[in-house]
Design a protein around this nucleic acid. Structure first.
Lengths: 343, 343
DNA sequence: TTGAAAGCGCTAACAG
DNA sequence: CTGTTAGCGCTTTCAA
């Protein structure tokens, strides 16, 4: 299978010739910048159609110092999260006439020469960047910011000493509400917490919410009740297996995310515990499959798609006005299903 | 929050001045094209570092008529599918030094002027395109192909009269194997089929596989046993509810995708039928949550991530050599869990 | 209302 | 080994 013929662009010059006008005029009609006689414009449009002309993004970008593209840098994140985020991004980027350049750092490999060490997505090919937690070296973030390059950070605080707009969830509040539900409605007293890896910000705030809820109800915090779930099914499962083996007493588990909740459920099931009768389990995120679990998982819904939308909006605001909200925290909602003991 | 200062690029000219050489020399060291004295090169690298220089993609693109970017056009597809595909694309694009420009047609809105009617992703800003089923108007596909613009199609046959490389799954074979398992292992005789919407290619081939399996085992095809699942939970559910209401007899359901299998399960459950004892259910795709269903869903795994990888490879091959496989069908695998009656 | 001309930042012959 | 010189295709003053 081969191409019918080699790619051949017609340029603005061809259009100008065909329409019998100057390049400047063609440019004017395309961009509706400056006055053009209606009749002239018609001739130009005809020529454009005739020649099947498409303006070169590169040339335009060069001339205008603007790419109309926004870059997204992300790490190797969960399927559901990635997809939901992408949908939010895609929707608003398109709405504002921008195109999305995506780069996933999961697969970074060794580059051949020194200049290729620059990121595939950055100042050279975008008007601004949306950077996901930990996908990018802080030094690189600082470098770009120092140059005045527009960026918003997803889901994390900026590196020390710089002020870059951030967007995240109301992790603490959501976690607190979840745990208060466990305490106030179901009267659990020994609630275990399955944290992410140390240093993870989401997990940190969720743990704070957990502790606040305990404190608010006069339940002492017991360090023995927190273990590492690592935002991962397998890790969470073995942590809970450990707990079971050492006969740790707990009547409920609050997992820092749904994946670790699944791991916990599986450990419990294999140990013959019933959920929620013997141990209640709740999670955080509300990924797609949570409602299909047995029992359906009670959790906190994080508005991921909305994060994508807001990120684009903040970034464009930053690009256009050099201003943006320093921090926007998107509200979560409690999703009560059966794994907490309800119904 | 405001930028520290306005964005300011240093250009190759600045670097040349700083290093006391010509732009050509700088270009040579950056791209390792043509010989440069080691000592000169060092001076250039120093200047690059000093000025924090990053070459402009637009300028480079203009000069080289090459963007090093591949475009992806997709429709509004399921989260799992999207994420898996993206991972495949991202991984190989990066591997070959390309960047991914993504465009989702789900949100297409009205454009302001005529030239903006060109796609956000296309000949003007990419070296080639990966186009997903039905995301793009056939006329546009043909237009691009006529110009010799490199494209590969995901998951569909090309429009009439053009030869564009396609990549898909071995739908027919996978479906046939699945249904043969139902017949040969479990001895089901009345197997219903939950199709996608009429015209859907995947569904078409899966139905063919279903029919082949029936034929191979001497089971007559009964049109009453095929209904529309629409690749959608809700639609599948109401179709099965209909079947139940009209007391259609069937001992197994082969759903054209996992989502409709889920809908079917839910209809059956609510009617008090046990799965797989009363009715067996199997699906196609093996989305993430299938193994978490109760009972875990027997299905056919489609190698989605691999589709992404192969698509990039074929496209690059097409770009570089103007040749590519006309059609590559990726093999599926049977994933036997419990909903078919096994275990 | 239109055109001429000067770049935007980079690459690529072609000389030297 | 290095510099000079043209562009790449488009936008944008500045004049007319």
């Amino acid at each position: 299978m081969s191409n019918s013929r080699s790619v051949s662009h017609s340029t603005i010059k061809d259009v100008a010739a065909q329409a019998g006008v100057s390049k400047a005029t063609v440019s004017r009609v395309i961009n509706q910048t400056g006055p053009v006689a209606t009749e002239t414009a018609e001739r130009v449009w005809a020529a454009i159609a005739e020649l099947d002309f498409t303006p070169s993004t590169a040339a335009r970008g060069l001339a205008m110092r603007k790419t109309n593209t926004i870059g997204m840098i992300l790490p190797n994140i969960g399927n559901y999260f990635l997809a939901a985020l992408f949908k939010g991004l895609a929707r608003s980027a398109d709405e504002y006439g921008y195109t999305l350049l995506m780069y996933s750092t999961q697969t970074r490999h060794v580059r051949k020469n020194r200049v290729d060490l620059t990121l595939p997505v950055g100042e050279h090919n975008t008007d601004g960047l949306i950077v996901f937690t930990d996908a990018l070296d802080p030094a690189e973030i600082i470098r770009l910011h120092k140059r005045g390059f527009p960026m918003v950070l997803l889901h994390r605080s900026p590196p020390e000493g710089v002020n870059i707009p951030c967007i995240g969830f109301e992790n603490k509040k959501g976690a607190r509400e979840m745990v208060e539900h466990l305490i106030a409605v179901h009267h659990y007293q020994r609630i275990a917490f399955l944290a992410g890896f140390p240093g993870d910000e989401d997990s940190h705030w969720r743990e704070l919410g957990y502790r606040e809820a305990l404190a608010a109800h006069g339940i002492p915090f017991d360090p023995a009740l927190v273990g590492v779930g690592g935002f991962n099914e397998g890790i969470a499962k073995s942590t809970v297996e450990q707990w079971l083996k050492q006969e740790l007493k707990f009547d409920a588990i609050f997992a820092a995310d749904d994946e670790s909740a699944i791991g916990a459920m599986s450990a419990l099931e294999q140990a013959g515990k019933r959920i929620p009768q013997d141990v209640a389990i709740v999670g955080f995120d509300d990924i797609e499959l949570s409602r299909y679990l047995t029992p359906p998982l009670t959790t906190v819904r994080a508005p991921i798609e909305q994060v994508g939308r807001v990120a684009v909006e903040q970034l464009l605001h930053l690009i256009q006005t050099e201003q943006a909200e320093p921090l926007v925290l998107l509200p979560t909602t409690l999703v009560v299903r059966n794994s907490c003991g309800c119904l």
